[in-house]
């Protein structure tokens, strides 16, 4: 096995990789500095929230009581969108590695178009475009818009994961008489899964943060609940302080959760 790994390296000379995610940094044990940064920000955020709500319950405690409904909506949008995006991403990724030119073309076009348009513009567009054809609730169109956008990025993650599996695996499966879809399902995708888990985790955190954009679409997510409170009480600074802290705590918790999950599945980083 060691020999094969060496051979792979020869084929593709090792280049430095700059891996900067756009989510909260997912803490890993080897990275002691980051691990500390995670702790400091997590404990710090909780301490500040606690201090503010206790020292000046009005307005901070009032704000905090007002937000949970929004947190729930934020989670609903995020989870629903990520599930949809994973499904779209799987098919897009398969399309991107397909030898069928038409399927490949459609998948590539989708990825190119979506990646070239800002998420906020897509949200508006899909929201109003959907509104013209069918009457969908705001929440549903927000979820669809997020999923369509993230599906393109997921598609690229799936494509990269599939392509990272050694080509000999496909040859071995095919030489045993499997069809290409059987080989994909039983041999390639299970192996690709391990490689794509960390970037999918990153996308999940990124999607949770981007879900704040749906607050412009009459969806009462965390940010929108904050806006509603601020608009009534005029406590803009206090409200957005709390909103920011709550987002921070959630994303930090989530990245921790994902890193634990990755350890369980045995992802090599």
């Amino acid at each position: 096995m060691a020999e094969i790994k060496e051979k792979k390296k020869e084929k593709e000379p090792l280049r430095p990789v700059i891996a900067v995610g756009d989510g909260a940094a997912i803490p890993s044990k080897e990275d002691a500095g980051l691990f500390t940064a995670w702790r400091v920000s997590f404990v710090g955020a909780i301490a500040i929230v606690a201090y503010l709500t206790i020292s000046s319950p009005d307005p901070y405690w009032e704000i905090l009581k007002f937000l949970p409904d929004g947190i729930l909506v934020t989670f609903q949008v995020t989870v629903a969108a990520i599930i949809l995006a994973l499904i779209i991403g799987l098919f897009t990724g398969l399309g991107r590695v397909s030898k069928n030119r038409i399927i490949n073309g459609i998948a590539s076009l989708y990825v190119e178009i979506i990646r070239g348009i800002p998420l906020l513009v897509q949200l508006f567009y899909i929201y109003f475009a959907l509104g013209r054809i069918v009457n969908v609730p705001a929440m549903a169109s927000a979820i669809i818009a997020m999923a369509v956008c993230y599906g393109a990025y997921m598609g690229e993650i799936f494509r990269a994961g599939i392509e990272a599996v050694d080509s000999g695996q496909m040859e071995a499966a095919r030489s045993l008489g499997m069809t290409s879809s059987q080989a994909m399902r039983h041999v390639i995708l299970p192996q690709a899964f391990k490689t794509i888990l960390p970037p999918i985790g990153n996308e999940f955190v990124a999607l949770l943060k981007d879900s704040s954009l749906v607050s412009i679409l009459a969806v009462s997510d965390l940010l929108r609940r904050g806006r509603e409170f601020a608009a009534e009480s005029f406590n803009y600074f206090e409200t957005y302080t709390m909103v920011a802290l709550v987002y921070l705590i959630i994303t930090l918790l989530l990245s921790k959760l994902i890193s634990i999950m990755e350890d369980r599945v045995g992802v090599d980083k």
Binding site: D166, G168, Q169, A172, S175, G177, Q191
Partner: peptide, 20 residues
């Protein structure tokens, strides 16, 4: 071709066993 391949076993230089 899948029917033909069922009748042909192949062993590769790099083994290509399924690691998962």
């Amino acid at each position: 071709i899948n029917k033909v391949r069922e009748e042909i076993g192949m062993v590769f230089q790099s083994f290509n066993v399924f690691p998962h």
